[in-house]
Design a protein around this nucleic acid. Structure first.
Length: 191
DNA sequence: GGTATGATTGACT
DNA sequence: GTCAATCATACCA
């Protein structure tokens, strides 16, 4: 069943890697994680890099909780706090899910997207799962957020993170190789 | 107090 | 391929 907070009380890289293939449900809606990215404390791409602020407060809280924030004024991003000890300032960004539960609700929330596009990309995922400020700090594996550890159905691919401008070289993005539910790699910001 | 920026997406040329 | 939408936070004056 649900794993305790201890599952997330590890380094963000290990958590991000193991997260592929796990099942995540918010209010009974969700699916299998197929893509995520790790964010540590001491790298400039991370929200934790500048130190604790009001926005990223959850990132410095106990592991196994959600860190939710708004990006570009429009999208809600879903993260899970991790780290070997509380206050580590590490988190994993959930970038894409393979929808398994609550398909109808997701479709209703997002319009009439194909199943493939319901949760492909962090912004879409946030919309499909109705992520909002009320979920910030919510414990994972209890209450509104269900979590089941699982194993990936295929090889896990490691690559560079997407959509960031700093520390782009760190290969901290994990995805299920060959999965059509993984967000397409945008190359507009390539150097 | 004012301005620049972002872990994105969707629409348009 | 290029650009607008949209707003809280960060940083400078």
């Amino acid at each position: 069943m649900s794993a305790g907070a201890s599952w997330f009380a590890r380094g963000c890289l290990a958590v991000a890697h193991d997260l592929i293939g796990c099942e995540l449900l918010v209010d009974g809606v969700g699916g299998t994680v197929v893509e995520c990215e790790a964010y540590a404390r001491d790298e400039p791409a991370s929200h934790a890099f500048p130190g604790p602020t009001q926005r990223n407060a959850s990132m410095f809280g106990p592991a196994g909780r959600l860190y939710v924030y708004r990006s570009y004024g429009i999208h809600w991003m879903l993260n899970i706090v991790c780290g070997e000890q509380e206050g580590a300032g590490e988190a994993v960004l959930i970038r894409a899910l393979q929808p398994t539960t609550g398909l109808e609700l997701m479709r209703a929330r997002r319009g009439r997207d194909a199943e493939l596009e319901l949760c492909r990309g962090p912004g879409r995922l946030g919309q499909a799962l109705a992520i909002g400020p009320g979920l910030d700090g919510e414990p994972v594996g209890a209450g509104r957020v269900a979590f089941d550890p699982g194993r990936p159905s295929g090889p896990v691919e490691q690559s560079t993170r997407i959509g960031i401008t700093r520390a782009r070289e760190l290969p901290w993005r994990f995805s299920l190789a060959g999965s059509p539910y993984v967000s397409p790699t945008r190359r507009s910001r390539s150097a």
